[in-house]
Nucleic acid binder design. Sequence first.
DNA 1: GTGAAAGCGCTAACAC
DNA 2: GTGTTAGCGCTTTCAC
Lengths: 331, 331
Amino acid sequence: MSVTIKDVAREAGVSVATVSRVLNGSSNVSEASAKLVNETIQRLGYSPNFLGRNLRKRETNVILVLMPTSEHSLYMKIVAGMQNFSQKLGYDIISASTNATTDNETRQLNMLFNRTVDGAVFLGTSFDAETLNRLSANYNIALCCEGVTGADVLTVTVDDEQAGYDSAKAMIAKGHKRIAFIGANSTALSAIRRENGFRRALDEAGIPLPDEYIYKSTYDQENGAIAMERFMSLSERPTAVCAVSDILAMTAIRRALELGFKVGSDISVMGFDNISLCELMTPSVSTIEQPCAAMGELVIKKLIENITSSEKDTRCYTVPHKLILRESTGD
Amino acid sequence: MSVTIKDVAREAGVSVATVSRVLNGSSNVSEASAKLVNETIQRLGYSPNFLGRNLRKRETNVILVLMPTSEHSLYMKIVAGMQNFSQKLGYDIISASTNATTDNETRQLNMLFNRTVDGAVFLGTSFDAETLNRLSANYNIALCCEGVTGADVLTVTVDDEQAGYDSAKAMIAKGHKRIAFIGANSTALSAIRRENGFRRALDEAGIPLPDEYIYKSTYDQENGAIAMERFMSLSERPTAVCAVSDILAMTAIRRALELGFKVGSDISVMGFDNISLCELMTPSVSTIEQPCAAMGELVIKKLIENITSSEKDTRCYTVPHKLILRESTGD
DNA sequence: GTGAAAGCGCTAACAC
DNA sequence: GTGTTAGCGCTTTCAC
């Protein structure tokens, strides 16, 4: 049914080795046979079976990307960046969503164990440092976007502490003196670091931070609304809010509007990520941009280096973020 | 380096055949050796190499999903539905974005040609009917969400004509007499059908449809704003607008707000798809829901049937849509 | 119930 | 330049 290298060899009157050579661009083949073979390939509609090839070469040139959810445009942008870049290096990217469950994550990782892919990058993971270290010792893996404390694994993120600092600093620069924070009390390292940066900025500016100005829960979108409601019911309301994600900022904004406040004047709101919706919303959302394409490219570059080299780079790389001011902070 | 079935066999003191048998749950193996083999597998941390297995079995149990863009939550929801479902049938889903270019699409399809996957489903495609028919003759493919005229290929969509009809009908039921339409003059069959349904509803109700009430361009988000601007500058402004996508509806809404109109009273707007943002936006967006999970499940079910059977089902299946009214139409 | 051996489609020595 | 051949890791007859 399916045409194989053998068929091509027979039809072209050469050996399978010769066909393989033209397939792989080997120089040791005469122009004449190359032409003949290529014509035969065309004529038979032959396409090499990569199961055979990959089995023999013990590599697949495919990298798996695992993410907690595929319904977050941030991840999609990162994956797109990876795809564009890896293509040039002859690698394919395939991706899967784990729904943030360890079960799914473990199951998806089988592709790594069963040698269907050469490496994996986690856009957030539910594995602990120990598990990751064990994985990293035996396979080529990397973390992107979200690091894990104590994990001695190749990692690419923004400088979350500095980004949190910059976010707060932007509000301070606008003259705000009462600034609240919507965080996440998950174990997410990025959220913790952003909060640390936020606190440092207020600290440096001598701005007090009452406990009621900090709302920490999960990344679930409704928490933005809950936080805002809580803030705006305080006797001394904040005039600005920094959130650890755009989605949280957006639902916070929506609730503020519903409560009758003018966003951008009564209350300013900063997001984080710069997902495409930031521009679409009314008001548009100020935020810290994560450079998705750059992060994706760097992590893929480093991971492929690990795959193709004998030594393993397990360092943590940082890419530059960017402050973007829009209507939600009165710009 | 990597532990193979041979290692397990040697360590357990049995033949590779026996190991293979316990791996595949064959009944013809004594309880004793099964136990022994399983222990050895555990001890050595063995994981079967699927390249070898798939090569031998000539199947991968993997299905490829190709989509124009991964930054559309509609597609992500469909893929999620597919994933949850296919898992039960022992299949994995991998997905890739084509950025709507034939080049990318062709390149991605190599996974089908090189036998890395058993089948492919297109969430929209740039291939013409002839190409698809040729593909379908030699491989297991399916279309989901977006059909192609003349393509004799397994297809699953909503009844777009009826959905367009229902969208307009909902506006008519609310008493609107001047209803405009934001469409797409792309070759997208769904957009054409939705427009046909829209026209039928107005026709049946005896409502005139001046040319200026139809704005057709591409699915690019800015076109919603352009359309709305055009509509609202007419001497006789429409009081309702139906769009072929939520994104177009949302940018239309945003522009209407910017122009000082009250959305839901001055102008009602209907979207299409029911992406999660519909609820998040202010005002929330009325729409026609596409049943993502149901579409994903059905197409995967049918495709797997094709893969595992000798005859090929190339019919077109339809799944039920749902009208959802929210604030943007004054509800 | 178990093992020996063939072979899935391919690449890469090795010989010529 | 080219062909022969071994073997990647696995499943599956076929004997026993």
